[in-house]
Design a protein around this nucleic acid. Sequence first.
DNA 1: GAGGATCATCGTGAAAAGCGATTGTTCCAG
DNA 2: CTGGAACAATCGCTTTTCACGATGATCCTC
Lengths: 315, 315
Amino acid sequence: MTEGTLGPVSDLELRHLAAMAAVVEEGSFGRAAARLGYTQSTVSQQIAALERSVGGPVFDRPGGPRAVRITPLGAVVLEHGRELLAKAAALAEAVDRFRAGDGRIDIGTFQSVSTVILPVVVRRLRDEHPGCDIRLSEEEPEAPRIGDLDLLFYDGPLDGDVEHVKLLDDPYLLVARRGTFSGRSVPLDRLDGAPLVAWPSTCDQPRMEEAFARAGANPKIVFRTAGNETLLSMVRAGMGSAVLPWLAVHAADARSDDRLRVHELRPAVPPREICLHWRAGRTHSPLAARAIEIAVEVAAGLADELALTYSGPAS
Amino acid sequence: MTEGTLGPVSDLELRHLAAMAAVVEEGSFGRAAARLGYTQSTVSQQIAALERSVGGPVFDRPGGPRAVRITPLGAVVLEHGRELLAKAAALAEAVDRFRAGDGRIDIGTFQSVSTVILPVVVRRLRDEHPGCDIRLSEEEPEAPRIGDLDLLFYDGPLDGDVEHVKLLDDPYLLVARRGTFSGRSVPLDRLDGAPLVAWPSTCDQPRMEEAFARAGANPKIVFRTAGNETLLSMVRAGMGSAVLPWLAVHAADARSDDRLRVHELRPAVPPREICLHWRAGRTHSPLAARAIEIAVEVAAGLADELALTYSGPAS
DNA sequence: GAGGATCATCGTGAAAAGCGATTGTTCCAG
DNA sequence: CTGGAACAATCGCTTTTCACGATGATCCTC
C-alpha cells in the first residue's frame, strides 16, 4: 500500500472520473478516448493519474484484446464518481437555466405601482421566463429598506448604497367633487384653506405638501388615509378634495366616475418621481436586468399615455 | 453575454469551487488563499477561471476593505458547488474506508468448509473489520461457477480463468459401525464388495471412487446423500460404512460417537485438496486479500491438528 | 509463430498553475 | 485633501501538467 490518505479533494479531477466512466462503458481505453475526443495515450495517463489520486489501480488490464475490468477499488470510485459527474452536470444545467433567465427575483413595491405598472411587468416577465420565481412584497414602513430585495419601486430617494433609474414623472392632479371647481385647470391658490383629504405623510407626500406651502397654498387636511378608495369616497361625499398623483388617479379609475372631476393644478406642483432602485455595485441576475428593461418600457408607455391626456408641467 | 453554453462538465474544476467556497466563508480572496495554502493572486486567478467556466462573474468586488459579495449567478454556482465538494469528500472517505478494509466480499463455500473453516475466518475478519459486509453462498450445482464471487472454496479443479491456493490436504477416512473393522487402519481391499454409503458424485467424489477402483476395491454403494448426518445415521444403523474426508468427519464430530469408529485406509487414498479460488488476474480488495491470508492460517492450524491425529499419507 | 488488438511509456511542444512583485481601487483617518 | 491601509487585478517568470504521436510490451487468435 502506498499512503493511506488521499490529498484533500483537490487531487480529484472530474475529467479523470469522466474518462473512467467512459472506459467502463466502452470496455477499452482506446474507444473511450475516441468517444471523449482524446488520444488513447491521454486516457491511459488520465486513468494513471486517477489511480495515483485514489492510491490504487481501478482497472485490471488483462492485456491483449480482452476488455479491461474494474477492480473493487474502481467500483467504489466509479459509484461515487458517477454521482459526482451527475452533480456537475446538474450545476452546468442550473447555470444555463440561470443564464437563460430562470431563477428567483424579489421585488418591493407600493400601492400605485402594484396596481398600474407591476402587473404588466410581471406578466411580460412570466411570459418570457415561464420557470421564473417572482416574489413581490408591499411593505411600507417609515423608512423603506431595500434589504434582500433585488429591485424596489419607490417614489423618493433612498438612503444606503443604492442605484436607481427614474421610470416616470408622476404629476399631481386635483380630484374634486364635480361642481366644486370649474375649468380644466385650477389655480393652486384656490386650494388655500380648502378642505383636503390626503395620504399620510409617507413617501413623497411631505415634499408635495411643502411645495403647496411654498406656493402660499395651505389647505386644510381633514382626513388622512393610505386607502385610495376611501379617499375618493370621502371626495364623493363632499368631505373635501384630494391631490393625488396621476398614477393613483389612473389606478382608481377616478376619471370615469361621474361624481368626480379631475383637474390639473396651475402652476403644477413638481411631480413625484417613480424610481426603481437596487443595491449599488451589485451584478444583476438576467431576470432582474430584464425586469428593469421591461419596467422602463412600461413606464415609457404610461408617460406617453399621460402626455396625451394632460399638458404636463411644461405648458 | 458571452456564450450560452458551458463546455461539457470538464471545464469545471473542484479546486476552483473549493476556492470559491473559501472566499465566501472568509469574505476576502487573501484570507481564503491563506486558508487554502495559496497566494492571493492564485485565488484571484482561480476565481477568474471559474467565472470563465460559468460565463459570468460570481463575485462583486466592491474594492477596498469591504468584503466581496456573491452575485446571483455565484449563488447558483455555490449552492451546487458545495454539494459537489461534499460528494467529492464522500468519495475520498469511501476510498479511505475501502483501503482500510471495509466493504463487501462475496464468498462461495461448501459443506465441510462452511462448518469447520469458514466460521473462524469470518469471525476473525469481522473482528478486524467491523464495518465489512461478508456474504456467503453455499450453492453446489453440477459445475460450480465462480460467477461474481470474490472467493470460492472448492475441493476440485475449476475451469475458467481461475487462480487458487491449496489450503489443506484432506485425507479420506473410513467411518464404520464399531466392531465392523478392527485395528487403527483398514486395508483398502477389505472394502471390495463391502456396503458403503456415500456422497453423490459431485466435487471430489468421482475422483475418490476412481482411486478405489484403481486399487481393485469396488465397494457396493447402497445409498447416496449429501447430508453428512444422514450418512452417519445410516452407518450407525448398520446400512454400511462411509469413506469421508477428515474435514467432514471432524465437522460431524464422528469420533466422539461411541457407536462409530474412524479408521485410516491402507494404502491411503490420495486426499482431496481444499482450495480457495478467485478469478485470475483480478486485483483483490484489501478485505479479500486478508480473507485469503486468514484462510491459509486457519487451514494450516487444521493441518497441524490433523497431523497430530493421523499419520497422513506419507507414513 | 505471425498478426492484430490492446495498454504503457517516452519525448516533445503547448498550455496552465502557481508565485512574487507591482499596479490600481476604494475607503478611512488624520 | 492627502497618506495609508486593505484589497483585488495584472504582469513576468518558473515549474508542472496536458495532450499528442510514435514506439514498446503483452496477450490472444489463427
